[in-house]
């Protein structure tokens, strides 16, 4: 049976998920907007590419985000586990620079189950772990009539099949909606 978009997004809580691709940060930002609670965004302190609140405010309220600047990748994982386990934040986002091992992934999964929070790891291509609930590959797509179109491909799904959707951001409703197939067809033609 084909997976429906509503089955996999918003992300399943008490689980951790992975996202890759050029649009990974937009995806994370949309996920922030889906929760009303505080969000922790962990990254390594040396990165010179920064997430800007003015960009995030399209999808969410920048005030709900706490940033954690860790000194190395081990600290990022440890802080992520601690935050997931505590359960006081509904979403924990972590930018990873190294491949995620199966052990680490499994530990994150267990921590998310204990705390009941959602984890979202922004990983580089092919650096994810098999322990993840879902893995998304997000890339922006050019469309002649919309400048928010993205292709969200579900590469791994523990509870269903994989699929791919073209989605857009609705500015007034402040939510993601899937572009109907026939529109896509006319687009391509």
């Amino acid at each position: 049976m084909l997976v429906r978009f509503s089955d996999v997004f918003p992300l399943k809580p008490s689980r951790y998920h992975e996202v890759t691709g050029a649009g990974a940060y937009g995806f994370a930002s949309v996920c922030c907007g889906n929760t009303r609670n505080a969000v922790i965004w962990l990254s390594e302190g040396w990165m010179h590419e920064v997430v800007t609140p003015l960009g995030l405010q399209t999808h969410c309220d920048p005030h709900q985000i706490l940033i954690g600047k860790c000194s190395n990748s081990t600290d990022v994982l440890a802080a992520t586990e601690e935050a997931l386990r505590s359960g006081v934040v509904s979403l924990v986002i972590a930018e990873l620079t190294k491949p995620l091992s199966l052990t680490a992934g499994r530990r994150l999964q267990l921590a998310a189950e204990v705390g009941g929070s959602t984890g979202l790891m922004i990983v580089k291509d092919g650096m994810g772990s098999n322990a993840t609930q879902t893995r998304w590959d997000v890339s922006p797509v050019y469309s002649s009539d919309d400048s928010t179109q993205m292709r969200w491909s579900l590469n791994k799904n523990k509870s269903g099949t994989n699929s791919s959707w073209d989605v857009r951001w609705d500015e007034t409703a402040r939510r993601i909606f899937v572009v109907p197939q026939h529109v896509q067809r006319t687009d391509i033609a």
Binding site: I65, I67, G68, K69, S71, V89
Partner: peptide
């Protein structure tokens, strides 16, 4: 305020003891 709960502050303390309290930051306009 909306995103300020006791639990969150405790989490910040615990994370702060690992990565440094000044490294937990927020955006301000």
């Amino acid at each position: 305020t909306q995103y300020n709960s006791d639990g969150l502050h405790d989490l910040m303390t615990r994370l702060g003891n690992r990565i440094g309290l000044e490294n937990i930051q927020r955006f301000l306009p």
